[in-house]
Every structure is written in structure tokens, then in C-alpha cells.
Design a protein around this nucleic acid. Structure first.
Length: 550
RNA sequence: AGCGGGGUAGCGCAGCCAGGUCUAGCGCGCCGGGCUCAUAACCCGGAUGUCGGUGGUUCAAAUCCACCCCCCGCUACCA
């Protein structure tokens, strides 16, 4: 049984096109592939609702954090749905089930002796009545003297320090310079003691190549204990501690467990089988920004709590937009809903699938390439192949034929490769193979030219064989283009979308014949994909550039 | 500064870990021809590269080693 997760979206902003690339899309493709292959698989996700950024935003907008979370949770959920991301559950961490799960998880690691308390000095802003997290203190770097730096890290010289070392500290929210020092109890997680088991797991785990090196290198110098508490009034309360909540990075990944539990309870299944007894196969999809959390902290937490460890962690890089880094402050980005108001979500899915490999490298989103990938590859090769075959079949009233043996064996090889590539998370290469299959069909047509005389045996055999290719394509494109796959099966008059578990039937003549006859009787060729117009691209691009300049 | 990733035709990439099958492939674009069933789509053919630089190992290097240059990213309380 597979549990596929995608990193939890942080609930204080809308998602942009890049979010799909690194995380939600690959996980979706993988989950859809597994299900289509006949495996039991669940795609689990939800909003990450805690942490200081949400609290700060609430303060700035004079709202409650609950309101911010509610607002963005609904938006993000909708955005992902519109991206044709199909979760088996999309929940959120601001949720009694999650509070309970996090606290129970904590109890387990506490009982196992992996926590301790220690006093920590922090800056307090009397004006905001708030203990300030490091990132909410601004001041002068104690080393290089650069002004307006964070409380923990200088962007100019790259050195780290504590907020108490910072010169002329001021509150990052209200600017107050009259800060007090408070000594407070914090809860620490003995991560340092977990160095060896974490390392051992990491070395053997199935993790994206670069990410593993990255994490192993990072722990080479050992691990420090981890402060898992914060003195703010937004988050999961720590049992037995007054005025302390869990640091968001402690509670967020536990969301994977909470959400599995919520889903499983609705299905009458036991979540413990997966997360405690280790009978499932857990795959996390994440962006490269949270490698440490998922490859080090999270396994450490799981080991300390005696929970099951993930089996695979798949990491992908970020997206740039027309060659430039996306940035909120520079207003250079495209939100998912903005893209969808211009173009079909499947075009974005196709774009990222064909341009993204499983690696830490970033990828660019460019409209020129989008046009190319959609118009000249997806449509010209696959869409056009399907359309011309169906048109010829309809016109020639082709109802049967014989499969061309050597063409079939070649197609079978391509299909096997595609399945293998899906399985190993190489979706870009899987898409390439799918293109190859359609290309091979086109080649066959070019050589045999069945349109010259549709009543010949060759014409019948070629079209019969190509029709089998279309059935295969219908199954193969489904994980990437689920909506088009559905539409294609409707065109073919199939009662339901075919599954990859039935892929062998595709080359069974009697099976093909039934579907072919059905199609010739009742179906008609239909344009599956519409081309992207250059004018629409221009319009959206103009919009983005105008916003960036404003 | 340290660490990670990367530098291969106009653009995007594969190959490198297990050196020869690479007189370096693929997609898009480009040029020429064909076809007309098809969404001006499709088929066939072609051109374009000192594989970041220098040196080394080897019978043989895009692939291994050393040094250097350039780009991107990260560096535990920002998710």
C-alpha cells in the first residue's frame, strides 16, 4: 500500500506555477500512475497552518490567524483542484485531530527520553506584547556592520549569530527599539543523539541523488539539538508547558500522519499499520528548499517516536519565470489561477512534466517554450496522430484488420519503457516515450499511406494497428493529462477510462475489434487539444510585465 | 568563506557514476524534398558543436584525476 505525500502548502499565500513543478504535479502523476497500475495508493496532503509568518500577517492585517488560515486554505485547495491534482485527502494542520496527533507524537518522544527543557534568552517587544522569533528582529550585523539584517543571519557577510548579539535590535513588526530580554523555558529535541540512526537511514533510503549528498554532507559535522518550541500564541500547545507551542516545523510533517489517519478512519482502515507498523510504502515529494527537514529532522522525529520511516523522498528544484527568479516583492510571478484564466491546466502539467527531471536543478517557465511544447509537440505529434487515425477509420469505415507484428513488438517495447520510467519517477522521460509511440505511428502512416486507398488490406492493418496505439496512448497519458484521457475515452465510446493494469489488452485483436466497431458505429473524431494562440500569450505576458513595473 | 548542483549545436536537454558501441545523440527551431488522411499538422533527407579552460592518466576521455574560470542554489528557528 502506497502513501504518497506532497509538502504541505504554507497557508499564507496563493500558489504560483512553480509550486506545481517541484511538488504537487510529480506526486500527482506518481499517485495516478500507481492507481492506474492497480496498486492501492493514497495521495495525502493538507495546509500547513502554523508558524510566525501567519501570525505576523494576522497582526498586520488586524485579523485572527484563524481567519488568514481559513481564507488561504480554501483558495489553495481550489487552486490545486483546478490544477487537476487529485488528493485522496486535503486537510489542514489547524484541526483538533492534528493537535491531538502532534501532542501524542510528542509524548512518545518525551517518554523515550528525547526531549529536555532549557532556558533560552529571547527578545521581547512590549509594544506588540510578543516574544520575537529570530527572523522578526532586525538590526546591525555584529560582524560586518551591515544594517537592517535579520536576528539570526546576515545576508551581506553570510554569518550566523543570535538576536542578542545583533547591534541596535528593533522589532521587525512595529519597529520598536525598546526591546526587553526575557528568559524562557524552551523544549529541545535531542537530535544530536540521533545522528547515527538518521545517517544510517539516509544512506540506504531511496532519495533524489543530489539531495542525499546534500544532507549527508550537512550532518558530517554532527547534529545540534533542536529547539522545538516557540513562545507565541499560535500553534499546537505543548502538553505540560505554559505559553509554549510547537515550532511549526515540528508539527507540520506530523500532518502527513494526521491526514492519513483522517483518511483511513473514513475508509475503516488502521493508520497505525502504515505509520507505526511500517506495512506501507511511504513516498514524500518535496521541493529542494526543505531537504533538511525531510531528510534529517523528520526521520529523526520518526525514529525517536518509533514510527515508520519514509521509503522514498523525491526532490525537485524551483521554477524561474522567463529566466528570472520569481519574487513576490518584485512582483514577478504567475499564480496558478492567473495561468488558468488564460490556458488549460493540462498545458501547464504537460509543460512541467516534459521539462522537469528528478533533480535539484531549477527549471524555467517561458511562454515561448510553452507554445512549442504544446503546439509543436503535444498537439502536432500526439493530438494530430489521434485525430488523423480516427478520421481515416471513420472515413474508411474500418471495422477490423490484423495487427502488424513487428510494429506491435516495437510499440510494446516503447510501452514497457514508459511504464518503467513512470515507476522510477522519470516522468519527463516517460512523456518523451509517449511522444515516441505517437511518432512511430506517424512514421508507419507515412510509409504506408493508407489514405491512397482505404479498402486495401494494408490500409486496414495499418489503421487497426494504429488504433491499438491510440488505446495505449489513452492509458499512458492519463497520469499526466487525466482530463484529456477521459475525453479520449469518451470519443472512443468507452464506458470508463481504461487503466494501465489492462495495458496488455491493447494488443488483443478481439478486444480492439469490439472497441473499434463501437467507435465506427457511434463515435466521431474530435479535436482533443486546442492550440495555444500567440495572442493569448502576449496578453498574459503584458499583464505580468505591467505588474512587475508597477 | 564552506558546501551542493551545473557549464555539450540558436534554444532546451541526454550521455559522464561502470572510458572505446560518441567520426558526440535527442527535442524544438532552421534548410531542401515528399504527402494531402490530419489541428498549415505528418513523412524523408540535410546543415550547425574546438563536449567551460589548461594539464595529466591511458592504446583510447564528453566520460577518470588535478588545478583554474563562469553560472545557480543552500548554509538548522523564513515556510
Amino acid at each position: 500500500m502506497f502513501i504518497v505525500t506532497a509538502a504541505l502548502p504554507y497557508c499564507n499565500a496563493k500558489l504560483h506555477v512553480g509550486h506545481l513543478r517541484s511538488t504537487y504535479l510529480p506526486a500527482d502523476i506518481y499517485a495516478r500512475f500507481l492507481k492506474s497500475k492497480g496498486y492501492t495508493a493514497f495521495y495525502v496532503c493538507g495546509s500547513d497552518c502554523h508558524g510566525t509568518p501567519i501570525l505576523v500577517r494576522a497582526i498586520q492585517e488586524q485579523k485572527k490567524p484563524e481567519e488568514i488560515v481559513e481564507y488561504y486554505h480554501n483558495i489553495i485547495k481550489q487552486q490545486l483542484e483546478d490544477s487537476l491534482i487529485h488528493f485522496d485527502i486535503y486537510s489542514k494542520t489547524f484541526n483538533p485531530n492534528h493537535y491531538k496527533m502532534t501532542q501524542e507524537f510528542y509524548e512518545r518522544i518525551r517518554k523515550n527520553g528525547y526531549t529536555y527543557k532549557e532556558k533560552v534568552q529571547s527578545l521581547y517587544c512590549p509594544n506588540c506584547k510578543m516574544v520575537l522569533p529570530d527572523r522578526l528582529v532586525r538590526g546591525t550585523c555584529p560582524y560586518c556592520g551591515a544594517e537592517n539584517q535579520y536576528g539570526d543571519y546576515c545576508e551581506v557577510c553570510g554569518r550566523t549569530y543570535t538576536p542578542l548579539q545583533l547591534r541596535n535590535p528593533r522589532c521587525g513588526i512595529c519597529g520598536n527599539t525598546d526591546l526587553e530580554i526575557k528568559e524562557l523555558n524552551h523544549v529541545f529535541f535531542r537530535l544530536s543523539e540521533l545522528l547515527n540512526p538518521v545517517k544510517k537511514w539516509l544512506e540506504s533510503a531511496k532519495v533524489t541523488e543530489g539531495a542525499k549528498k546534500y544532507a549527508l554532507n550537512w550532518i558530517k559535522e554532527g547534529l545540534r539539538d533542536w529547539d522545538i518550541s516557540r513562545s507565541i500564541n499560535w500553534g499546537v500547545p505543548i502538553p505540560g508547558e505554559k505559553n509554549l507551542v510547537f515550532y511549526v516545523w515540528f508539527d507540520a510533517p506530523i500532518g502527513y500522519i494526521t491526514f492519513t489517519k483522517e483518511l483511513f478512519e473514513s475508509l475503516g482502515k488502521d493508520w497505525r499499520k502504515i505509520w507505526i507498523e511500517g506495512e506501507g510504502y511511504i513516498v514524500h515529494f518535496i521541493g529542494k528548499d526543505i531537504i533538511y527537514h525531510h531528510l534529517i529532522f523528520w526521520p529523526g522525529m520518526l525514529i525517536a517516536a518509533e514510527f515508520a520511516l519514509p521509503n522514498e523522498i523525491r526532490v525537485r528544484g524551483f521554477a524561474t519565470l522567463e529566466g528570472k527568479k520569481m519574487s513576490k516583492s518584485r512582483r514577478w510571478y504567475i499564480l496558478l489561477d492567473e495561468f488558468f484564466s488564460f490556458f488549460d491546466p493540462e498545458y501547464l502539467r504537460w509543460y512541467w512534466t516534459t521539462t522537469t527531471s528528478e533533480s535539484l536543478s531549477d527549471g524555467d517557465f517561458s511562454f515561448r517554450t510553452l507554445e512549442e511544447k504544446v503546439n509543436n509537440v503535444l498537439i502536432a505529434t500526439i493530438g494530430n496522430f489521434i485525430h488523423r487515425i480516427l478520421s481515416l477509420i471513420k472515413r474508411g469505415n474500418i471495422r477490423n484488420g490484423t495487427l502488424i507484428a513487428n510494429a506491435i513488438s516495437k510499440a510494446q517495447a516503447i510501452i514497457n519503457d514508459t511504464l518503467q520510467l513512470y515507476h522510477t519517477n522519470q516522468f519527463d522521460k516517460a512523456a518523451e516515450k509517449i511522444i515516441t509511440l505517437a511518432g512511430f505511428g506517424n512514421e508507419l502512416l507515412g510509409k504506408t499511406e493508407p489514405w491512397r486507398n482505404l479498402s486495401t488490406k494494408t490500409a486496414h492493418d495499418v489503421l487497426f494497428t494504429c488504433f491499438a496505439f491510440i488505446l495505449a496512448l489513452n492509458m499512458l497519458i492519463d497520469p499526466i493529462l487525466p482530463r484529456s484521457a477521459r475525453r479520449l475515452s469518451e470519443i472512443l465510446q468507452l464506458e470508463q477510462k481504461p487503466h494501465l493494469s489492462d495495458i496488455d489488452k491493447v494488443f488483443d485483436s478481439s478486444y480492439i475489434k469490439v472497441i473499434l466497431e463501437q467507435f465506427v458505429e457511434q463515435g466521431k473524431p474530435f479535436i482533443l487539444f486546442r492550440k495555444i494562440s500567440r495572442q493569448r500569450i502576449q496578453e498574459l505576458l503584458t499583464l505580468l510585465k505591467r505588474r512587475a513595473k508597477a
